[in-house]
Design a protein around this nucleic acid. Structure first.
Lengths: 201, 201, 201, 201
DNA sequence: AATGAATGAGCTTTCATTCAT
DNA sequence: GATGAATGAAAGCTCATTCAT
């Protein structure tokens, strides 16, 4: 994962979070129990409550870690990209469909967390950050693009919204049918949508 | 709901399915128990096992009912629409963002069912029918449109895929942030995407 | 015990209460667990929570039953006694030191309940009824006696208080040293205390 | 408390015992855990087992300390009192109802310890010393009094028993209803009982 | 057919104790 | 001596399911 643990305490916390993720991926969130987590962590039952107080708090910490991890990895994709909006746009789309950001683990965990978002405010906070973040970054890019190209500034936010929705829907498609998913084609269609609205060539 | 029960037995089954849906909406799928269902159904505990054998089978029946119900309501929107592809396209989009098909209940239940799809094959079957059905109908429409208009037949499936993904992403947005959702704007953006790819005016 | 259960539901509740009492007597309140209770009740674990919701509520019901049971048995002793205060006084003392009201079970349970009275308001309610009831009844008797004999009405309550305290202390002695306890001698000393204050011969 | 610790080791032991007492007073014996004790002691968990081996042994040491502390404080009350039995009797009663010997802490801890006396022999030893000690001292006093006054030597032990029982019952009353307790009145009633049996004026 | 009391496996959590540091 | 992370048995409780009525 993204961050190196600084000490043993943090290492153990990370082990528990990763075991939680593994359990959600393997048997699903509803069947994820303290036992299923501790078996995967290779630790004793008490550690969960020693480090997180309760299973619910571990789940929340897992959600927080997941959102943060997405952010960190996305940043890495943008680090070596120039300032021009088209490069950043393409880098963002590349990132969003990369194996690192979109894989069996991330897809399963995202949708598991989101499925409980409407009855768990703490998890909701983390399970919706990706959407808002994507919206913000794309909006910025489209504002820049619109200004420099054809001035249709007003539509930048709507364009971003449609783009986020489309990538969101493709993530869901990957989640439901991972075997049939085609990353290249997904990106092509997304770019075709943008090209239809704004000149980026 | 969509169908009238034909006899008392079917009426009881429907009561149980509706109580299950209500429970998922109110307290979430993980917290939905036999007790929470029976309280809402106003029936005795034994009825669940008498009519469905187990809680899992009731859940599966609920998923089947849900998929069927979506299909029936969608059909109703297309019934009085002419055969021309553009009318059908607009009717489909109107349907997908209508209060009847997209509301708090449908959104919550769809994503609850999908969240367990990857560990429950029986539910997966029903939780993914909407996607496939949308894809099929939109593909047909775009094939017709492309044929009659500008002949870019090869891209019909891709266009349909992008469209389904975008509407899917907007459903998710509605699920996560129902208060901010704007049905009219959502449809506008979807149509803008299509207009950018194909001439439908 | 004092009351006949009216139906099966009440019978089961009574079985659980009696098993709780038995467990407290045999292994003490701190070691009384759901398991220790259910073993003695010969029922499955779930019954406790089905009938009482939680262990704490069963404990409270046990305390309530105990206080009520004391009251009912005490009443039985006074039923066939005449109205004159001296007869009633002697009947009360006889009752309080009778095998039926003061035995290994009652002593252990009373002091177990009282020991948690200061951190458990619900149990406190029941664990202190005996004191107030004794005080009330003895006060009445001494008021009658004082009126009919030597008119020292003002001291009736104090006399009752001293008498209740003394019997209380003797119960504690019985609780701590049951093997050495002498019911006859206890009653003699109690009566000597009263005789020293008021003429009852 | 009564004794000055002689070295650091004894100081730590005393800190643990006092933290145990504090915990029993604040949250009750059943809820007193190693954690609740160590929080109040401000020491690390390991110290308990280092100094006492186990929680049970700490509890036993606490009981021993408590009995000893009672004895030491009672002695202090008798130190400057003359040898005549009546002075000693009054000093004893004054002591038994003094704020120093009878207060919220002593009452709660005594009855907590006693409540487990019948299943814990080690604690039983210490939890019953007060009774025996009071009985011994009062018996001596009444023997002296009886000899010097009216010779009813045989009843000295019984008188002492009644007196101990009464003070015991009043302690219990203080334990259950500390807000209503009246030390002066309690002593008056105790003295009235004695005066009714033996001439001490 | 309909009921809801009864079952017990399995859940989350607490706890006294151990032991590497 | 001193610490507190680690352990796992056992605690209270929930739950889908069964079955006598």
């Amino acid at each position: 994962m993204a961050r190196k643990p600084r000490n043993k305490r943090e290492q153990t916390r990370l082990t528990l979070i990763e075991a939680t993720i593994q359990s959600i991926v393997e048997i699903g969130l509803p069947d994820t129990t303290v036992t299923s987590i501790m078996q995967r962590a290779g630790l004793s039952r008490g550690m969960l409550h020693l480090h997180f107080g309760s299973k619910d708090e571990l789940l929340e910490a897992t959600a927080a870690f997941f959102a943060e991890d997405y952010y960190v990895k996305q940043e890495a994709f943008l680090k070596n990209v120039g300032k021009d909006p088209i490069s950043r746009l393409k880098a963002m789309i590349d990132a969003d469909f990369s194996e690192e950001l979109l894989n069996q683990t991330t897809a399963i965990v995202w949708y598991a967390l989101r499925s409980v978002a409407h009855t768990n405010e703490a998890i909701r906070q983390h399970a919706t950050t990706r959407d808002q973040r994507l919206l913000d970054v794309y909006s910025e890019i489209f504002k820049d693009l619109a200004l420099s190209k054809n001035g249709k500034q007003l539509r930048a936010i709507e364009l971003a919204y449609g783009l986020v929705a489309m990538t969101e829907g493709m993530w869901m498609d990957y989640f439901l049918f991972p075997a049939n998913f085609n990353r290249r084609k997904a990106k092509e269609i997304v770019l075709a949508f943008i090209t239809g609205q704004i000149d980026i060539n």
